[in-house]
Design a protein around this nucleic acid. Structure first.
Ligand SMILES: Nc1ncnc2c1ncn2[C@H]1C[C@H](O)[C@@H](COP(=O)(O)OP(=O)(O)OP(=O)(O)O)O1
Ligand SMILES: Nc1ncnc2c1ncn2[C@H]1C[C@H](O)[C@@H](COP(=O)(O)OP(=O)(O)OP(=O)(O)O)O1
Ligand SMILES: [Mg+2]
Ligand SMILES: [Mg+2]
Lengths: 648, 648
DNA sequence: GTGGAGTCC
DNA sequence: AATGGGACTCCAC
DNA sequence: GGGCAAGTT
DNA sequence: TCGTAACTTGCCC
């Protein structure tokens, strides 16, 4: 139990700087402290990705770290982590070297560029909106607790092999999301394991959203247990303050759903997200919409708290002297060169505490991929692998049906027994979704992989479709503002096995049952003392905790919408609004689809604020919808839930 | 007469590289070749700014250079040029040093950024349009020749102190635009000097434009003697090829106006501009709208031929190994760091041979400044200087009346007897244009300047208004497409001495006569043997060869336009369309005028192609006007005549 | 925003 | 003896 | 566009 | 009890 300096807090270890001290150590030809220093960062890494985000601390991280380290030592997983840690350490010293070389250069240009950017960004600051980020407390655990009230005071976790979450009792022991079950058990031998019940979580999530819609009908579901709301309008109408509104909302959620939520209230979504973690669980935090208050808040905020900053980036930043967001300013002249344009701009907005002030329903975003993957016992037999691929393809077909789309490229993913991951993709001659197609097109690349590494032993296989084309009718949904969901899609346009199969049950995110594959059935039900050790079954078709795009529940009145006519694009076969000009525009667009897509994307990235790009979609907006200032009704933009490092 | 290597052609001298050779020379402590090397670049510089553009060569530049050098030697002007040359040489060695330091760095990121940019730009290539650049041959000279046919075969120039142009006979002697008269006389003792007659040039220019309107009613006047046309439509309608059309057009111009023009035909305006110089005079050149043809054309094109590349940039580029546009590619990883974002992007588009394919009438651009300046005998007496300032202010008032605008900031410019130039500006508490105001507001900054440099001796004084506010009614002119000019502006909105004084005579660019200031009258008429050396009088109110925005002549039918109503913005006092939404939008905008202006500007610069910014103006466009593909009816954009290095 | 430099006609 | 005038853009501060 | 690393829930 | 699954973005080649 090495009680080294600064290891009782969840702060990252100091980077071993190539200083004189280190040089001296090398002179001795004996890296005395190096073994230890190596452990430092590795141990920190082993703490897992969800470290600071979990909210509750007051845990002796050094003990936790030690236990995890001991539990992990020697495993293949550990080796892999070790290797990655080495690589990262090398990468960081490379960064530092580059910074040193950069220092010899004249950086005034970069400095001024940064200041210009800051000034420009500052102009875009909007403090007029009240954005709320809501996050359910220990969500899966909370849901499970409703059915198992006796677990209220005992530490328990949801998920077996890896914890998806655990209750706050368990967190006191150091248990966290993403932690291996057996490690958690070491940390907390009394820990109870519960299996996953996605239906329940989805149903509960729907209940919560039901309440949210009253406060902002255009709220944005950011994940199964999170949402953003813009309550500016609500506050104005009701003559209430934001904190007051959120208290009421949280009370109402608690009453109606019996679960507790935490909330952050701030001028933009990035800040709100950070704030929702401040008073977890069952609390809320208001960051005043005041420039200096925001700047001070950011100044002392550890970078790791930022939404796009994980273990790796945290270490890299710390190495160049950036630990808090306030530190960013002092290093602004390096950041572009060291970390690239995107990260640089992201960090700038973070330093300033800027973020999105728009909030848009999830169904206005375009899903970009559908996939499935599973872990299994090490496998190298080619026949078995083909069986597994077949099975994976069938799983994927189900998901594709549910998603109502096909894919034009197929990605095969494998993880070796060493935890090395490889992916290989093919573009299919046509958009596919049937298991047969998925299998037949992915088989060759699996074969090629086998050839590349003969006798490879797999622990995971996955398939994913990208370059999706929707088979849903309401492709242009967003153009006309929030259209109610009952499209029912009696489509004849894309007859190719049109799968009018997927009917959604209203508002609980369920769908018609698919024939449950009878499989390696571990239908485990863990008892409370956690003795019956069963492998988690993650192959259930209800395992979704990924992308499930549901309409926001309509709060009161259902608005009526005229029945539109649709024309199908001969190129992409997506239905289009029956308007000649628009249709032609779309075809033009489609003809150089990818090219234009890339261009637009890059442009959007370049021009940070306001400018709307050139797609016909964006051209269309502006005539209908909310005229609420600062909350324009966007057409399908990028997915704001994702923490793209880009501001906006 | 030093006949040094490579001095018989108009190529710039080699930069004295800081190579070993140079280092050795320094060891000798005797810069043996340095004196010579210094002369090289200085002589080249003395050749004047309009070197390669003049078109005709086959002149022994070494002789010319030598004569100019000898004629200039010892003058204050020469000293100043010498000093500037030194500074530039130093700057270039600084650039080279930076490049060397850059070489120690990892430039793969910059390299890839450049390649990405190239790819992106390539996507925007539009080869579908036929753009023509027309340029009158030796324009002023050609116009003068019509009245003096006996000068056909004798070398003559227009303008006294400095030649504005000269005929092609004179050019054989090395005479050029911008050359000092006395120098030209040394080069060509027989040279005849003619005084300027701006009325004639403007009238003739209008005649030419009359013809142009038949071929493209939306042609763009780029200067008094140049225009861009998009003849794609015309070609299609008439079933003629571009070369054929342009031949016909040039023939027609020659028949109707008796002057000859040269033309370049290419896929975009940048290329067309270059091409119009290829077969001057009275010739045309077609660059095939074929990617590889264009790339090859650019590959061997000296950078100096590019519209934004002058003497200085040419030398800087040559120093880093970029002499032709093809050379740009090899150095692309350095260009951003060495020359800045704008120059970098500009050079990239040049390497690719890309440029604007849009052409828009001049009246759709917004003038940004109005000014006047004049050179005089060295003057340091404060009283005289005040008189001069007073006179300048009065000149400016006239120009402001003609321009129908006021200015919110005032720029005083002085040139010392040493040719050093200084400017000082003030923002006026309100928009001004009256001579009294101009004088009273600029006097303090003149005084301050006098204080800064006691006893300063001036050779030039100028005043310029910027941040203009128009007092014309049709502020929103561009929104409704090309509106005919007869606005007549019986304005009552801005009553403050509304100056309904400026009435324009139709289509010849003249305006009502202002009381001619009786001044130091040198009403010179030079005789053909050029013995009577008189100082050019440039103070005439008809001296305009600057910005005179005239409507394109309407080719056949005059379109009728409904009489609009105008509301005046309480902030900027500019008239606005009488539409409540638009008006409110405008006011919002005005309230944070500068801030937003800057933002938009920067954004426009950032997002290179297509994206349209966020001003209400730009939002408005798109519903009316040409639906011609690739020729969108723009709202007031930036002035494309100006060679901003930005691609667009 | 200010001042200087470069560019073009 | 002696080197223009109007306008615009970009950059560094 | 392919492959991979990183981040988030 | 034996280190998840689904999804996105960004960088590099
Ligand atoms: N690494 C993970 N893998 C799979 N599922 C996860 C993972 N992390 C979280 N989840 C699931 C389970 C969580 O209950 C749910 C919401 O996550 P999150 O909000 O981050 O934590 P939490 O709601 O469980 O606790 P809290 O928000 O109180 O910290 O998402
Ligand atoms: N410094 C200057 N350089 C060039 N032209 C100038 C200058 N000052 C005034 N002008 C006027 C006179 C020109 O006739 C007119 C058009 O210029 P420009 O087209 O460049 O040359 P040009 O028409 O005289 O000859 P050409 O086009 O045949 O080379 O602009
Ligand atoms: Mg949560
Ligand atoms: Mg000309």
């Amino acid at each position: 139990m090495a009680t080294n300096a600064s290891s009782t807090e969840d702060v990252p270890p100091e980077e071993a700087q190539p200083t004189k001290q280190n040089g001296e150590a090398n002179q001795n030809n004996k890296p005395a402290k190096d073994t230890n220093a190596g452990h430092e960062s590795l141990k920190y890494s082993l703490l897992g990705p969800s470290l600071t985000k979990a909210g509750q601390d007051s845990v002796d991280q050094s003990k936790v770290s030690e236990i995890i380290y001991e539990a992990s030592k020697g495993s293949k997983f550990f080796s892999r982590e070790e290797a990655k840690d080495k690589i990262l350490t090398a990468k960081i010293s490379h960064i530092l070297a580059k910074k040193a070389r950069l220092d010899k250069l004249d950086l005034t240009r970069d400095l001024r560029a940064a200041d210009t950017l800051i000034a420009q960004l500052e102009l875009s600051r909007d403090l007029t909106q009240h954005i709320v980020h809501l996050d359910c407390d220990a969500f899966y655990a909370a849901v499970e607790l409703l059915d198992r009230p006796e677990l209220a005071d005992v530490p328990f976790a949801v998920g077996g092999g890896v914890l998806t979450t655990c209750n706050y009792v368990a967190r006191k022991f150091g248990c966290r999301s993403g932690m291996a079950g057996f490690v958690a058990k070491k940390l907390c031998p009394q820990l109870v394991f519960l299996p996953l019940n996605f239906e329940k979580y989805n149903a509960k999530a729907a209940e919560v959203r039901e309440v949210l819609a009253e406060y902002d009908p255009r709220f944005e579901s950011a994940s199964i247990d999170e949402a953003y709301l813009n309550i500016t309008e609500y506050c104005a109408e009701k003559g209430m303050g934001p904190a007051e509104v959120v208290e009421q909302m949280r009370r109402e959620i608690h009453e109606k759903t019996k679960i507790t939520v935490s909330a952050g209230i701030a001028a933009n979504s990035k800040l709100a997200k950070i704030c929702s973690n401040m008073n977890k669980p069952n609390g809320q935090f208001v960051l005043p919409s005041d420039r200096t208050a925001i700047m001070e808040f950011m100044r002392d905020l550890p970078c790791r708290k930022l939404n796009g900053v994980g273990r790796v980036f945290e270490r890299e930043l710390a190495a160049v002297g950036v630990k808090t967001c306030g530190d960013i300013y002092g290093q602004r002249q390096y950041l572009n060169q060291l970390f690239g344009e995107k990260a640089y701009e992201f960090l700038m907005t973070c330093y300033l505490g800027l973020g999105r002030t728009s909030v848009q329903p999830a169904e206005e975003y375009e899903r970009k991929s559908v996939g499935t993957e599973s872990t299994f016992k090490d496998m190298s037999d080619p026949v078995q692998l083909r069986e597994k691929l077949r099975w994976t393809a069938e799983e994927l077909e189900k998901d594709m049906r549910r998603a109502e789309c096909k894919g034009r490229t197929l990605v095969l993913k494998v993880k070796l027994h060493t935890y090395e991951v490889f992916t290989r993709q093919v573009v299919t001659p046509k958009a596919v979704y049937l298991a047969d197609d998925l299998y037949n097109y992915s088989l060759p690349i699996l074969a090629k992989l086998e050839q590349e590494r003969p006798g490879m032993k797999l622990r995971l296989m996955g398939l994913r479709c990208t370059h999706l084309v929707s088979t849903k009718k309401p492709d242009t949904l967003a153009f006309f503002g929030l259209k109610p969901r009952r499209t029912e899609s009696a489509g004849s346009a894309d007859e190719q096995s049109g799968s009018p199969h997927a009917k959604r049950v209203q508002r609980d995110g369920e769908w018609e049952q698919w024939p449950e594959e009878a499989l390696d059935g571990y239908e485990l039900e863990m008892d409370k003392d956690g003795t019956s050790e069963t492998r988690e079954q993650s192959g259930s078709p209800f395992r979704r905790h990924g992308k499930e795009v549901l309409s926001n529940p309509t709060p009161k009145k259902a608005q009526s919408v005229p029945e539109e006519e649709w024309w199908d694009c001969p190129i992409c076969s997506r239905p289009q609004a029956a308007n000649e000009r628009l249709f032609n525009e779309h075809i033009d667009l489609c003809l150089s689809r990818q090219a234009i897509r890339d261009t637009v994307q890059q442009e959007a990235a370049l021009s940070s604020t306001g400018s709307t790009g050139t797609t016909p979609e964006s051209r269309r907006s502006g005539s209908v919808g909310e005229k609420k200032r600062g909350r324009p009704a966007h057409g399908r933009g990028p997915d704001p839930r994702q923490k793209k490092l880009c501001f906006g």
